[in-house]
């Protein structure tokens, strides 16, 4: 199954808050913090375990003024980076959000 058909959620190992449209994400176990820009924050916000990645991409393509293919590729790149950093997790089934 390609990645876009998977459900995506915030990892329970993160703490985060959206402050003035930008997410601040803390990884407590390694004492690291990062901030996301507004577009990345939108993806982060939608990653609540109830949506598949392609559904998130569809919503972004409705909201943002850019070529759909660019939105799709950039979003997948971003999600892959967040998976590598253990900030997001993916699953074949809907995920119960452990972080509000």
């Amino acid at each position: 199954m390609t990645i876009v058909k998977k459900y995506v959620s915030k990892s329970s190992s993160t703490a985060s808050r959206i402050i003035e449209d930008e997410a601040v994400i803390v990884l407590p176990n390694i004492s690291k913090v990062t901030t996301l820009n507004k577009v990345a924050t939108r993806i982060w916000d939608m990653a609540d375990g109830s949506k598949k990645i392609f559904e998130i991409i569809n919503e972004l393509q409705q909201e943002y003024d850019a070529e759909p293919a660019q939105i799709k590729n950039d979003s997948i790149d971003f999600i892959n980076k967040m998976l590598t950093e253990n900030m997001l997790i993916i699953s074949d089934q809907p995920l119960e959000s452990t972080n509000d």
Binding site: R17, I19, E20, E22, V24, V33, T34, T35, L36, N37, A40, K81
Partner: peptide, 20 residues
């Protein structure tokens, strides 16, 4: 990803976000 955590927190505080 942006790398301006300190700036972000200072901005938030100036806008009365009780970060701590």
């Amino acid at each position: 990803m942006t790398d301006s955590y300190d700036q972000k927190i200072q901005q938030a505080i100036s806008h009365l976000v009780p970060v701590y």
